[in-house]
Computed example of a mutant assay.
Amino acid sequence: MLEITDRITRILGQVNTGTANGSLVITDAVGGAPWFSSVHGLAMTEGQMTPDIWLVGNTLYWSWGNYPYTRIPATIIYGTY
């Protein structure tokens, strides 16, 4: 049973990172705290990496840094709770 003070998770969208560093402003996050989860569809092998992903306010960032690895794209699912 939900109480009036409960917070329900809402998925707002998803973004594919490709292999470039990037960011996305979550404009629909009004009234909730943003969250994210990432998935990739490849089996990882040595010398490959998925991006680091983090939130600052309502902006979602992803980056591979300056590491000499093969960049594996990820799909980031984001929303509010």
Rank of each mutant, 00 (worst) to 15 (best):
L12H: 08
G47L: 06
R7V: 12
N16F: 05
D52L: 12
G32E: 07
L60M: 05
N16T: 09
N21R: 09
T80N: 08
E3R: 15
S23L: 09
L55D: 03
D52E: 14
R10D: 06
R71P: 06
Y81Q: 15
G13I: 04
N16Q: 13
M49F: 05
L2A: 10
G31C: 04
S37Y: 09
T45C: 06
Q48Y: 02
M49Y: 06
T5V: 13
P73N: 02
H40I: 00
A33L: 10
Q48A: 03
N66G: 15
Y78E: 03
L42R: 14
T17A: 01
G41S: 15
S37A: 13
W54V: 01
L2W: 08
D6R: 07
T19W: 04
M49H: 09
I72K: 04
I8Y: 07
F36G: 00
P51Q: 03
H40A: 06
I26M: 04
I4G: 12
Y69L: 11
L24Q: 00
G57L: 00
Y69D: 11
G47H: 04
T45L: 09
R10A: 10
V30C: 05
D28E: 15
D6L: 08
P73W: 03
S23F: 10
V30G: 12
V39E: 15
G41A: 14
P73A: 06
A33S: 12
T5Y: 13
V25Q: 12
H40V: 02
H40Q: 14
D6M: 06
I4E: 15
R7D: 06
H40P: 02
W62E: 00
V39H: 10
D6H: 11
H40C: 07
I53Q: 02
L2Y: 10
G18W: 02
A33E: 12
S37M: 11
Y67W: 14
I8Q: 11
M1G: 13
T45G: 13
E3H: 13
E46W: 11
T5R: 13
T45Q: 12
P51T: 03
S37D: 13
R7T: 10
G41F: 14
A33D: 10
I76N: 02
N66I: 10
S23C: 07
T19D: 04
I4M: 14
V25W: 06
G47S: 05
E3F: 14
L12Y: 05
W35Q: 01
V25A: 14
V30Q: 11
Y78P: 01
S37F: 08
G18D: 01
I53E: 02
N58A: 09
